[in-house]
């Protein structure tokens, strides 16, 4: 394999990995505050992208995306207030099952609003045929957008969770709800806020990946499954690790394709996931003591 081809495989891995990573970030926020996995995360992505596509017909692209993010954020709040908050004796398992139900309902509603056709947002920079050349290999500028937006989201989230009172309160709820309540944290609103944040970030992710993956009402689940795999791989609750794990999985798949028939790439991804679950159940990048605390 010559060097240019090697770089090309790497860039192809980054293309796929960047999509995985940005999807995975959304999973982490709700997990961070509530300990539940939101299986409707993929649907938030598609709702965001579809709304942006509809708005883009009447408004400039940045406005359309902003509008879509705000609308999806509001949807996140509605979902939490109407479904999650009403559950009595809410165990984590019960809430997870509710999010699965929600994902199915949202998919069907989207089918009726936007029908079954595949759509996509225009490329943010250039067109379908534009490329950026790196070391003799080529990559779509949209991938750089995905990576850039992921980086901004991760940085903003890190700052938010570490340096603001609200962010700290959200983390406190995740660690020990009772203790957080005793300190005066309104835990219910923290959960609502986490759903809003996660829906908003999902919508943004959906918009940024739409030119690459295209958008169809039922694409949420496959995207979410990969994103979820990556979130586990990196260690749940850690956004930076999720990005690293996303790129790792993308690169792994790309180089598997280079030596094996491409139908084996999913096998490689699942084998890695199994190995991680067996040998490092708290994720590739997680510190053991932290996750032990969380699991307790």
């Amino acid at each position: 394999m010559d060097f240019a081809l090697f770089v090309q495989y790497a860039l192809s891995g980054i293309t796929v990995g960047s999509v995985y990573a940005i999807v995975a970030i959304g999973f982490n926020i709700i997990y961070c505050t509530t300990g539940i996995i939101n299986f409707a995360q993929g649907e938030f992505l598609i709702v965001g992208a579809m709304t942006a596509i509809s708005l883009a017909q009447v408004a400039p692209l940045p406005v359309a995306i902003l509008g879509a993010v705000l609308i999806t954020t509001a949807l996140g709040a509605v979902v939490e207030l109407v479904f999650i908050r009403q559950v009595r004796n809410a165990s984590v398992l019960r809430l997870i099952i509710i999010t699965i139900g929600l994902s199915i309902v949202m998919r069907e509603v989207m089918l009726h609003i936007w029908d079954e056709q595949v759509r996509s947002l225009p490329y943010f920079t250039g067109t379908e045929v534009s490329t950026v050349t790196i070391l003799g290999a080529h990559i779509s500028p949209q991938v750089l957008w995905v990576l850039g937006v992921s980086a901004v989201i991760v940085a903003a989230l890190t700052l938010f969770f570490r340096c603001t009172t609200t962010g700290r309160a959200m983390r406190a709820c995740a660690d020990d709800r009772m203790a957080a309540c005793l300190c005066g944290v309104n835990d219910r609103w923290m959960v609502t806020l986490s759903f809003m944040l996660s829906a908003g970030i999902g919508a943004l992710a959906g918009c940024v990946v739409s030119p690459i993956t295209q958008t169809q009402y039922d694409m949420g689940a496959p995207l979410a499954i990969k994103g979820f795999t990556v979130a586990i791989l990196g260690g749940m609750g850690n956004s930076m690790a999720a990005v690293a794990a996303g790129l790792f999985l993308g690169l792994l798949e790309a180089f598997v394709v280079s030596v094996l028939p491409s139908s084996y790439k999913e096998v490689a991804a699942i084998v890695v996931l199994l190995l991680i679950l067996v040998f490092r159940p708290s994720g590739l990048f997680a510190r053991r003591d932290v996750s032990a605390l969380r699991a307790a």
Partner: peptide
């Protein structure tokens, strides 16, 4: 001669192999 998933959202990996 390669086969890909019907839900595939990006095929640059397979196409890199073709290019090579």
């Amino acid at each position: 001669n390669e086969v890909y998933e019907k839900e595939a959202t990006d095929l640059t990996g397979v196409l890199t192999k073709v290019k090579g």
